[in-house]
Computed example of a mutant assay.
Amino acid sequence: MPKPILVFDCETVLDHAAVARAHRLDENDVVGAKAIIGEEFPPPPYHALVCISALLAVYDDDRAWKVQETRTFHAGILTEGQILESFFELVSFTGPILVTYNGSSFDLPAVRSRAMLHRLQGLHLTLVSNYFHRFSENHIDLCDDFASFNNRNRVKLDEICRILGVEGKVAGMNGARVGDLAASGDFAAIGRYCAGDVAATYRLFLLRESFHNRLTPEALKASQDGLEAALARDQGNGCA
């Protein structure tokens, strides 16, 4: 029986204080920090986490995937440290295979650097399942998987969803809007956006399992229908 899977995604904003420390500026020099970064998308350590959304699914007796729960932890209610602790607790309790889209390049490094900033220990992420190992079987990064680990083949989440004919990102939303929403305090909207990316990633995971003959057409449809039922059931779960 396959292990449970935990599909997750992070939303972040630029940590101006981190940029300032890295470049020996005053930590309150937001203008200077923004000038250094410019229009570039900075590496993970420069990002502060404002949301983590996750979906837990298990392989059931009908040989289909069944969503157990969806959870969203965001900065509207929790501190960054509490978001991380909540996520670590969920991972530790379920012992899953992690499923992400671009998680190897961004989400996991961001989680690790922010946890170290807050002096948090990621016992299950490192010692137990070793999700950070380059060839770990406990983490499936669909972006890398679909690109056959060739950077030239990588496409964005919403692109691959549209290409494959599955529902993708929340309409009218993209990562560039997260900073403005955070500045206005609308973390619930960020949570919905993040949860939407998780659902899209799970839909891609199901197609991957079908392609590899691990889901029959009937089991694929049952898994897909189960997702939609779970999304309706769990609307508002967690902190979103």
Rank of each mutant, 00 (worst) to 15 (best):
A188I: 12
Y193R: 01
A188Y: 13
N138H: 14
I163L: 14
F187K: 06
G191D: 13
C194G: 03
A195D: 06
K156N: 08
A171L: 03
N174F: 00
F146Y: 13
R192V: 12
L164E: 09
A182I: 06
G185I: 07
A182L: 08
F132I: 06
G191T: 10
A147L: 08
R134M: 04
G185W: 05
G179V: 05
C161D: 03
G165K: 08
H139E: 11
K156T: 10
D144H: 10
N153R: 15
A189T: 15
V155F: 02
D145G: 00
I140K: 12
N150L: 08
V155I: 11
C194D: 02
G175Y: 00
G196E: 04
R134T: 12
G165H: 08
E159Y: 10
I190A: 06
V178L: 09
V170K: 00
D186V: 08
G185C: 10
V198H: 06
A147P: 14
I160T: 15
F149K: 15
K169S: 02
E137H: 15
G168Y: 05
E159K: 06
V170G: 00
E167V: 02
A147N: 11
G196S: 09
A189M: 15
K169C: 00
C161R: 09
G168M: 07
F146Q: 05
D186F: 05
N150H: 14
S148T: 02
G168N: 11
G168C: 10
M173T: 01
C143T: 01
A189C: 14
D186T: 08
V198S: 03
F187A: 04
G175E: 03
S136M: 06
L164I: 00
M173P: 00
D144V: 02
R192D: 14
L164R: 15
